[in-house]
Amino acid sequence: MSGNNDKTFAITFLGVIGALVAFTFAIIIIAKIITSSDKSVDQVAETQAIQARIAPIGTVVTDPAALLKVSAAAPHAALSGDQVVAQVCSACHGSGVLGAPKIGDQAAWGGRVKAAGGVDGLLASAKKGKGSMPPRGGNPDLSDDELKGAIQQMLKQTGV
């Protein structure tokens, strides 16, 4: 009789294991079917979201020729001498940073105007930069007329 119990147990055990394996495969197949239909739509959206997150936020241009092309590509409305002085020049010339002649210092500006040969000489110096001052005061978008207007405005404010 114990042989019959062992046989019954083995058949029942294998039946339960077989049912569990069949149930597991059924769940896997159902899960694949459910997720495969949403995968194409979600995968495209997810890929786009990832691309947006890892996209660079800017570029660095180190080639001077390419920099001029980039800055020339964005035209702006002409600025008055007052505006250029306020937005660009006053950062250094307002306080005399790094040896820049302060607006209002007649002796410093008078000597510079005389040494440069007038406003046109100061313009040539401002275009290429001088000492710690970068070319065009650090704003490559400024035109020659805007630079000249700013120089004339600073000289006017100084009384030279």
Score class of each variant (00 low, 15 high):
residue 1 M to W: 13
residue 3 G to Y: 08
residue 5 N to D: 07
residue 5 N to I: 12
residue 6 D to Y: 05
residue 6 D to F: 09
residue 7 K to Y: 08
residue 7 K to L: 06
residue 8 T to I: 15
residue 9 F to A: 13
residue 14 L to V: 07
residue 16 V to A: 14
residue 16 V to P: 10
residue 17 I to T: 05
residue 18 G to Q: 11
residue 19 A to F: 15
residue 20 L to H: 09
residue 21 V to F: 10
residue 23 F to W: 15
residue 27 I to A: 14
residue 27 I to V: 12
residue 28 I to E: 05
residue 29 I to Y: 10
residue 33 I to N: 14
residue 33 I to E: 09
residue 37 S to M: 06
residue 38 D to E: 10
residue 38 D to Q: 15
residue 38 D to I: 13
residue 39 K to N: 12
residue 40 S to C: 07
residue 40 S to L: 13
residue 42 D to L: 15
residue 43 Q to M: 09
residue 44 V to I: 14
residue 44 V to H: 04
residue 44 V to D: 04
residue 46 E to I: 11
residue 46 E to L: 13
residue 48 Q to I: 10
residue 49 A to Q: 13
residue 49 A to M: 06
residue 50 I to M: 03
residue 50 I to H: 01
residue 52 A to W: 07
residue 53 R to D: 12
residue 54 I to Y: 08
residue 55 A to V: 06
residue 57 I to T: 13
residue 58 G to E: 09
residue 58 G to F: 02
residue 60 V to K: 00
residue 62 T to C: 00
residue 65 A to G: 00
residue 65 A to C: 00
residue 66 A to G: 02
residue 66 A to W: 00
residue 67 L to T: 02
residue 68 L to V: 05
residue 68 L to I: 06
residue 73 A to S: 14
residue 74 A to N: 12
residue 74 A to Q: 14
residue 74 A to F: 15
residue 75 P to F: 04
residue 76 H to L: 12
residue 76 H to Y: 13
residue 79 L to G: 04
residue 79 L to Y: 07
residue 80 S to I: 08
residue 83 Q to S: 11
residue 83 Q to R: 11
residue 83 Q to K: 15
residue 86 A to L: 12
residue 87 Q to F: 07
residue 87 Q to D: 15
residue 88 V to H: 11
residue 88 V to I: 15
residue 89 C to R: 06
residue 90 S to N: 15
residue 90 S to D: 13
residue 93 H to S: 10
residue 95 S to Y: 05
residue 95 S to A: 11
residue 95 S to E: 09
residue 96 G to F: 04
residue 96 G to M: 12
residue 97 V to W: 02
residue 97 V to C: 01
residue 99 G to H: 09
residue 101 P to F: 05
residue 101 P to L: 10
residue 101 P to V: 10
residue 102 K to G: 01
residue 104 G to L: 08
residue 105 D to C: 08
residue 107 A to L: 10
residue 107 A to G: 02
residue 108 A to T: 11
residue 108 A to E: 11
residue 109 W to Q: 09
residue 109 W to L: 02
residue 109 W to V: 03
residue 111 G to T: 00
residue 111 G to D: 05
residue 112 R to E: 05
residue 113 V to M: 03
residue 117 G to N: 04
residue 117 G to C: 02
residue 117 G to F: 05
residue 118 G to V: 01
residue 118 G to E: 00
residue 119 V to A: 02
residue 120 D to A: 02
residue 120 D to G: 01
residue 124 A to V: 00
residue 127 K to M: 10
residue 128 K to V: 14
residue 129 G to M: 03
residue 129 G to T: 06
residue 130 K to T: 08
residue 131 G to N: 06
residue 132 S to Y: 06
residue 132 S to F: 03
residue 133 M to A: 12
residue 133 M to F: 09
residue 134 P to C: 01
residue 135 P to C: 00
residue 136 R to W: 03
residue 137 G to N: 03
residue 139 N to M: 11
residue 140 P to L: 09
residue 140 P to Q: 07
residue 142 L to W: 03
residue 144 D to T: 06
residue 147 L to R: 11
residue 151 I to N: 01
residue 152 Q to N: 11
residue 152 Q to D: 08
residue 154 M to F: 07
residue 155 L to V: 05
residue 155 L to S: 08
residue 157 Q to N: 15
residue 158 T to H: 03
residue 158 T to C: 08
residue 158 T to K: 07
residue 158 T to R: 05
residue 160 V to E: 07
